[in-house]
């Protein structure tokens, strides 16, 4: 059975893409959960959609135009947040919905384009990953892992207590920008097999699952990345056999694991008390 999956090159590519996003998404998501910004990845997915549509319209590689749009959106979010205005929340909403509305309108202008074309970008598909995509995803994932590991203690400090980080002279704005940019990068890595509307789930749910059984930030990160990778690969495989959109399949699997672990943790707590 497993061998049959691996016979097709599109499946090989989808599975490699699944491993990459499975590793990257929780590595970023853990800092988003820590600072209670779980939905920021979702917003950046909306913004990336406008980039995808622009790429389709102008016959450019949609992965690259999505990357440009998501990174620009991420920087805009940090600038808005750094201003600290109460209207920042509304500004974010405008940015996010502007992204998805722009995406739908722009794609409708492409030759033969209908909003339906966006489905695979929104919800993921196993047949769409090209070898060019994979090369880009590999580089982007490496960037995400180097930043989240290499700056991990700093990102933790800023996410845990931003005011203290400021008072101790850490480059808070630069660190926030770095996190925002790797979040945007992760959104793009997710756009083939997971989908722009579901990427946030893969950033958050493995972290939420891991922290049910871990005691430290470090362990939470490692368990979450392992879980993310497992559900992504299993989700892509399931998607092939059951013929379902891969993004939805991956996220449903992730949620199933979360529920199982939550029940298990609750039972264990009951028994030990």
């Amino acid at each position: 059975m497993a061998l049959e999956v691996l016979r097709y090159e599109f499946m090989q590519r989808a599975l490699v893409a699944a491993v990459l996003i499975g590793l990257a998404a929780p590595s970023v998501g853990i800092y988003l959960v820590q600072r209670r910004l779980s939905l920021i990845g979702d917003g950046l997915g909306h913004v990336a959609l406008a980039g995808v549509a622009a790429g389709v319209l102008t016959s450019n590689e949609p992965v690259l135009t999505a990357l440009a749009a998501a990174v620009a959106g991420a920087v805009a979010i940090e600038v808005i947040r750094a201003r600290g205005r109460t209207s920042g929340d509304v500004a974010l909403a405008v940015l996010f919905y502007g992204g998805i509305a722009g995406g739908v309108v722009i794609i409708s202008q492409a030759p033969g384009g209908t909003p339906g074309n966006l489905n695979t970008y929104l919800f993921g598909a196993i047949t769409t990953t090209t070898s060019d995509d994979l090369a880009i995803f590999a580089v982007l994932t490496l960037v995400v892992l180097v930043v989240t590991r290499g700056l991990g203690r700093y990102l933790f400090a800023v996410s845990n207590d931003e005011e203290y980080a400021l008072a101790s002279g850490l480059p808070v704005l630069a660190l926030n920008l770095a996190l925002a940019v790797v979040t945007a990068v992760t959104v793009v890595v997710a756009m083939r097999v997971v989908g722009l509307l579901l990427v946030s789930a893969l950033m958050i749910i493995p972290v939420a699952t891991a922290q049910l059984v871990t005691r430290s930030f470090r362990a939470t990160g490692m368990v979450a990345s392992a879980l993310g990778t497992v559900v992504s690969v299993l989700g892509v495989g399931t998607s092939y056999y059951v013929d379902t959109p891969s993004g939805g399949t991956i996220v449903l699997l992730a949620i199933a694991v979360f529920v199982l672990v939550a029940v298990g943790a609750a039972v264990r707590e009951r028994l030990s008390s």
Partner: peptide
């Protein structure tokens, strides 16, 4: 600096040592 606000707990579990280490980053 020891702030008054009780901000040691974020959304993710972290150990005493992890939080204290963030004071060493300078």
């Amino acid at each position: 600096y020891v702030p008054q606000r009780q901000t040691v707990t974020g959304g993710v579990p972290s150990t005493v040592r992890e939080v204290v280490t963030s004071g060493r980053l300078t």
